[in-house]
Design a protein around this nucleic acid. Structure first.
Lengths: 245, 245, 245, 245
DNA sequence: CATGAATGAGACTTCATTCAT
DNA sequence: GATGAATGAAGTCTCATTCAT
């Protein structure tokens, strides 16, 4: 048992060191020698655990995605409304990246554009998660949450591309501390996207689009109709607002 | 002069070959030997023109961005409305990437995450272009086109991140022919984003979001106001009344 | 005792595995790891029994030659006639190689040309056996069985070299099943060699090889000289009269 | 031209050094570093000329066999009698090995038992030469020079195996100076083999195989039969005897 | 200007061997 | 006695880069 633990420790030490160095210098510029020093083992020991430098590279997201994606996906079935599910996916995605900057740097800056990584189990997990998102969007379109002419693929690209871009920029600028974390941007961001694709209408209320004069008129009306007001108050497209409290 | 021409030809042949090979295999996996063969020159000749393999890498976007970004930015001052200017920037961006897939592969998959590239003139040009976009958005916020609480940085990230993501995916899947080109996605995409950030008002009217009972009530009102009706017909997307308050 | 037995079993399993693998891949290309797997023991265990990979290599013929050569040499003193003794040596030699192809592959293809092996006890046994053969031949020359001008060393080289060559070829061709086994070639082979070196005489008649004048002379002699007759009886194959002079 | 010559020199220097070191230490124990020092070039230069350490190994016999075998085989068609042709083949074989001991050590002690070498052009040349020998023997059997029951394959194995054995032993003993060179052993050796397989009889001079009474009878016949005489005159079993003068 | 030829520097990887348990 | 785990030591090979012509 002690042995097992020590072995695990060793393997983990190697992967930790590798993650740090790969993320900081890039896979190609990192050397096994450097990693072995950082991990406090000999180079040969690294090859005891990983057949190849590339195997070591891929083992890192393999492990992390196993630990993470699966777990986060377990929650999804319990969230019934589509937007909530989408938000949950985005949230776990951001959480993962934010809590492990080395990992997100590695994945976003290096692995995403590595063809061999795309044939990896780890990437399959990422794809699975991306697919969930697509499914949510499609479901939303199908059940009338979203406009029928919405392009699910485009929307998913907006969701993921924006987050990825935010992380990439953050990394490329040396991960500065910002007024707003990316996590804090999630709801404003989602609000923009979702409000742009929601079906306007009866099912979930009526969506109107009026000019100023109309608005003024409407203002008066609402003013005078208390019944309407209270409803409007609780009406809430973006459950995100609620969650913020 | 003939010499100059020949020299230019040679240099260009080298850069063309390098672009192709860097894009297909990645900078690190490409070799000078391979590029020299592809370009039809000797390896030593490459070093006549470029001091270093990396110099050659950076010379490619340097040249292309000089040819492109500047030119596209020349038009901007003549477009007065902010959204139009934003659209123009996005458009030239997509045009560049779509018309030169090797270049977009190189920039998006490799250079974007290269720290040294970020200190390059070429990257400065890209940044300049990204800054124009940010400026447009800020101007839009300032002049009331966009909501005052809009996060310009987030919006720019949405605009660029989404497009980048679309291109990256397209590349990673081997650039398949799709029903919709990315260019064709631009307007639907912009519509979602812009409608999500526009200030509420006459031009694009007021958007309400209510539940059924509210809608019924509203229906009555509208019923009686013919002026309102026609406006409502052209109405569009997705802002809750609440949020506007 | 049980321990001893188990130990012996283990050691033998290792040597068996090593023999197989050394023979199939060559000493240098075989790895201790592979042998340990084949033998069903750990690598470290191999070092319990053999100090070195090379020690393991040399231990194999050591053991086999101890078991074999000695035994086969035990019979020799009981065979009085030289040719029979030679045949017995060749026979046991072929028998050993044929019954243990891995061993013959190892010895012939690898050990024979290994300088350090030549300082081994195992090689000493082989040399002893080769020496017996040389002794037989010399004895044959001394006792008139073979021609006095025969070159014992050359003859031994013929005997061993031919057999070795046959085995080497057989191995290099993947040990195909042949119409004639090497064992079945032994007698035809010996017949050629022996008939080439026997002192001339009766058993297989007189073989003469003469030019014209010699032939004529011979005619006369034979006709008239009964004394010659007895000589001719022991005569053998294939020597020109000229050469004899 | 000067360039070419220098290049050739360099390549040859590498091959010479490699031959020496491979022969002395064995392929596996030799290192590229050592060869590069011996050749006076850098390690990288070796890889300019040879893709692989093994390529370098195989290039050596490739070159030598191209220079040699072909040339020696050119003579064969001009030698009409079978035994003469066989002798010529053996002779060139011994000559090659004797004049280039490093080469014979390499081929006999290492390459002969190297499976990959057997798929080489160089080995094809060796096989071709071995095949010539087999063809000669078969022709000799077919045309009555040799006994019809002779086993051509066995005989070739005797011829080659013996010579190889002599060379191997010579090498393994450190190439001592001997009273007789292997070349000097050729004719005695051939005489034993050939006399053992020649068809017994008139056609090629007179080889007789008789028992006593027959011999006596023969005397009478020869004496009296002039017709036989002329045949005998042109006869010449072993042209080797003639060549010796 | 162009290049053939050469190489320094180092990376990855392999394996026989050791040792604590 | 047996072994899992660790590693020292080396070797092959690759490539960007230089330089003389």
């Amino acid at each position: 048992m002690a042995d097992r633990v020590r072995a695990k420790t060793r393997k983990d030490r190697i992967m930790d060191a590798a993650l740090r160095i790969f993320a900081e210098k890039s896979f190609q510029e990192a050397t096994i020698s450097e990693i072995s020093k950082e991990a406090g083992v000999s180079e040969a020991t690294i090859y005891e655990y990983f057949g190849t430098k590339e195997d070591l590279l891929f083992a890192i997201p393999e492990k992390i995605s196993n630990d993470t994606y699966e777990e986060s996906e377990a929650v999804l079935p319990f969230i019934k409304d589509v937007e909530g599910r989408m938000r949950a996916i985005m949230l776990s995605y951001i959480q993962l990246y934010e809590s492990n900057p080395h990992y997100s740097a590695l994945v976003l800056l290096q692995l995403m554009s590595n063809k061999r990584f795309r044939q990896t189990q780890a990437h399959a997990a990422i794809r699975r998660s991306a697919h969930s998102l697509l499914d949510c969007i499609r479901e939303g379109i199908a059940n009338g949450t979203f406009r029928p002419d919405a392009d699910a693929y485009l929307i998913r690209s907006m969701l993921m591309g924006t987050i990825e871009h935010l992380f990439i920029h953050w990394h490329m600028q040396g991960m500065p501390r910002r007024e707003k974390t990316i996590m804090e941007m999630l709801d404003p961001f989602l609000e923009i996207v979702l409000s742009g694709i929601r079906a306007k209408k009866e099912q979930q209320g009526l969506t109107l689009h009026l000019n100023l004069e109309d608005a003024r008129a409407l203002g008066q009306i609402l003013q005078n109709d208390p019944a309407l007001q209270s409803k409007a108050e609780s009406a809430d497209a973006s459950r995100t607002i609620k969650e913020r409290n």
